[in-house]
Computed example of a mutant assay.
Amino acid sequence: MRLIRGLTNLKRIAGRADSPLASGCVATIGNFDGVHRGHTTIISQVKEKSRALGLPSVVIIFEPQPQEFFRGDQAPPRLMPFRQKFEALLAEGVDMVLCIRFDQTFRSYSAMGFIDDVLIGGLGVRHLVVGDDFRFGCDRAGDFRLLNQVGQERGFSVENTRTVTVDGERVSSTRVRNALTVNGLEEAERLLGHPYRIHGRVVYGRQLGRQLGAPTANILLHKMAALRGVYVVRARLDSGQWQDGIANIGLRPTVDGKRPSLEVHLFDFAGTLYGQHLDVVFRHGLRDEVKFDSVDELRQQIVRDFETARAWLAANPATPDT
């Protein structure tokens, strides 16, 4: 069992005689948006302790993320959708992910209620890794000090997270997001530990790209991404095959787009991509997203974008597996 969705399922699993949490676990809590170098360091701490204690490692995340609940459309853009985050956490060697629905009911949880019902009653936490600035519970009343105090009384230990810095500053999701917002792909890569990518399923679109001479694989984004504009990309298909291409990410203002989307055109590719999951790596920014006066102007710009992208790819060939 790798994903536990919601507190109801957690309670059901915890009540089983064969529960994987029967002896407890080592856990950490956070948004883990982007799963950047700071996050992977925290996960390493959790795994070290879980191996030492012979217990499963668990990452607790929230859906929607708390800022999305409180701020709605004004919340910062996501670095990755939920499925991609879950897969990234598993790739780091996490045994289980608990995803708690952040709604009005959960928002009203007291700090002690969270400790009793989730950490102790649900997960049986034996060791917890969190930052010393971590706050939780209704009105953010719970903190590191409270966790330490209750842990000493109830039989679990609490450890502070290790800080990771790049260029003298702490690595954070906000810092990655800020880099991407100004097209700082190289800085984002240093903070993430790998090139920025978005993973998503190809869905049926309006076929506008085909009408413009540039058929695209359309990936709907439930939230606006930190990137907006036209990019040179490299995409991995379900088969494991890599293809170079060009992508537009944003709202498609010329054709009155209403929902954020990622549209990817793969160069020299013939085939059907509907239903596949593409792993899209952003390699180079070409231009901002622009609203053109006519579809014909957009068509002409697409031709120029293709030429520019192919020239950049010729000068910057990718390695076989990226």
Rank of each mutant, 00 (worst) to 15 (best):
A141I: 02
D95Q: 04
M112C: 02
R236K: 14
E189L: 01
G72W: 08
R299F: 03
N148R: 15
A314R: 15
Q241A: 14
Q301I: 01
R304W: 04
F82V: 02
A217V: 08
A217H: 11
D256T: 02
L53I: 00
C25V: 12
H39W: 01
N160A: 15
V59H: 01
R5F: 03
L146W: 08
W312N: 07
R154M: 08
R135D: 01
P253R: 06
R107D: 08
R37M: 12
F106R: 05
P195V: 11
Q207P: 01
K291M: 07
G113D: 12
R190P: 08
R228T: 14
G285A: 15
L89E: 03
S50Y: 12
G245E: 03
Q149V: 09
S172T: 13
F306N: 13
F269N: 03
F70Q: 03
E187Y: 01
L298F: 04
Q67E: 11
G257C: 07
L237F: 07
V303I: 12
S172D: 00
A179M: 04
D139R: 15
A27Q: 08
L128E: 07
Q300S: 07
L123K: 11
A14R: 15
V203E: 12
C99T: 09
V280F: 02
C25P: 02
A314L: 15
F82A: 04
A91E: 12
P320F: 08
G168I: 09
D132W: 03
F282R: 10
L79R: 05
R206Q: 14
G184M: 10
F292V: 01
R12L: 11
G271Y: 09
R107M: 02
K47M: 13
F102H: 03
V130D: 04
D321Y: 07
G168H: 06
R126W: 02
G34L: 05
I115S: 05
R2D: 06
P320A: 09
L208F: 11
R51F: 10
F102K: 04
Q67D: 14
P215C: 08
S23I: 01
Q84G: 02
A17R: 14
D288L: 12
L191D: 03
R252P: 00
Y274D: 05
T254F: 10
D116P: 01
I246K: 01
A88E: 09
G142R: 11
F282G: 14
L313K: 04
R162M: 09
V158N: 02
L180T: 12
S239E: 12
G54S: 11
R12K: 10
H127K: 11
P195A: 14
G54V: 09
A111I: 07
R170F: 03
N183H: 15
L3G: 00
R37L: 14
R283N: 04
D133E: 06
A52I: 05
T322D: 14
V26Y: 11
T181G: 03
V130L: 05
F144D: 10
W242S: 02
H36D: 07
H194G: 00
Y231V: 13
F144I: 06
I29T: 08
G271K: 06
N218R: 09
G271D: 12
G137H: 13
R78C: 10
V166K: 03
L185S: 13
N248Q: 15
V118I: 15
P253C: 12
L89S: 01
V59T: 09
Q211G: 01
Y231I: 13
Y109I: 02
V118L: 11
G168C: 05
A22P: 00
R51M: 04
V125F: 06
L10I: 10
G168K: 12
N9V: 00
P76F: 09
